[in-house]
Amino acid sequence: MIDDEDRSLVCRTLAGDRRAFEQIVERYQKVIYNVALRMRSRAEDAEDITQSVFLKAYESLGTYKPRYKFFSWIYRIAVNESLNFVNRQKQHEELDQNIPDLDPSAEQVADEHDLTRIVDEGLMRLRVEERAIIVLNHFHNLSYGEIGYILDIPEKTVKSRLYSARQLLRTRLLKGHLIQ
């Protein structure tokens, strides 16, 4: 049902109906913003990435194949934009080393009580490819198959990357005493 509505909105947009694209933005801005936010962990960057995702989507709407789910297609753009953004910023980050230290004292942990921040800090310590899989699987509940399509990798690779990403995250959060 959602898929049919999405396809209809795409057709209407292609036919020149701007209101239809507005509905697409309304429908997907929250999930796209959250993908970008978890990939990047900075609200301003997430806004820029989300804007860029919808611009790209509008630009290339004619290439969308209706046999695929529209949400997978737009997630794919979102993940690629996030990965590109992260890679562009990588060099700067390596110099900056601005990522918070993940070895807080027990007092600090007790003070934080901020699940989102703890998780974000853990995520930022993963490689972007691993981060993307964790984000899509755990925050957006996408299946291995859907993640494979979005990241353009076989389902088998999704599984192995997901398992190793979880393992790394477990090690890092344990090191930071964040999983008690």
Partner: peptide, 20 residues
Amino acid sequence: NMLGAVPLVEPPLNLKKRIL
């Protein structure tokens, strides 16, 4: 469970306008 408990964040109110 910890990852699943992280809520989705509402985007800023002006984001849609900015995109359009």
